[in-house]
Design a protein around this nucleic acid. Structure first.
Lengths: 107, 107
DNA sequence: TTCCATACTTACAAAAAGGTTAGTACTGTT
DNA sequence: AACAGTACTAACCTTTTTGTAAGTATGGAA
């Protein structure tokens, strides 16, 4: 089971992963949520280049795919916190590998 | 050194990796080259949906970034083989993590 | 009654990525 | 002289992704 060969198909695991966390922003967002829940405004501040629209849009996708949990405290002014679900935490080793890869590549 | 915190900047490791292997095709191509050098025609056959243009275009990018080696045997009709460089082999653990992630996610 | 703070929406525009189709170059074989 | 076989190129178009700028909703504080 462990080392089954991966053939490229419409639903192969590599493509599944690309669909879930591909694109310019999702992994950056997930990485910020690694430690603790964060509010939108904090996320925006720690990902300097992202626009508010993209941030909200990508968060929504991540919530829809079950990687991120959205908690609305129903206060005014609004307070909403985003955190990793247990599935979302599965991306941590992946991000770690990306960091390792980049460091080995550039060294 | 090991566990340095990763801040999101223009050249942070996550973004470096995304630039190198991001997009729809690069990781699929690299995965096919995992075992052995392959010719263009074979790559095309094992990645069913890719167009010839995209395959050649992405291979060129991968060669330019030093992840893939291109060997031209100078024969007629042309024979060219593509293989992973040592830097290219660094993506293998990354791909493995992607496969693991997808399997955990979907189970 | 005006403004504040925060999360979120909408309409539109620009840029990037990807796809289609038709071609080139090269020689040995028919 | 035409063709086969392989890697590659070029022009053009469509789709997807990302960005910009403005606006909405809320209730309490000034």
């Amino acid at each position: 089971m462990e080392n089954e060969k991966v053939y490229i198909t419409a639903k192969c695991p590599i493509r599944t992963t690309l669909e879930l966390v591909g694109g310019k922003w999702k992994l950056l967002i997930l990485h910020q949520l690694y430690n603790k829940p964060l509010r939108l405004s904090v996320l925006k501040a720690t990902i300097p280049d992202i626009s508010e629209k993209m941030l909200i849009q990508e968060l929504k996708v991540l919530v829809d795919s079950g990687l991120v949990h959205r908690e609305n405290f129903g206060e005014v002014p609004p307070r909403v916190e985003y955190s990793l679900t247990s599935k979302g935490k599965l991306v941590n080793p992946l991000i770690k590998e990306m960091v390792t890869f980049a460091r080995c590549y550039t060294e």
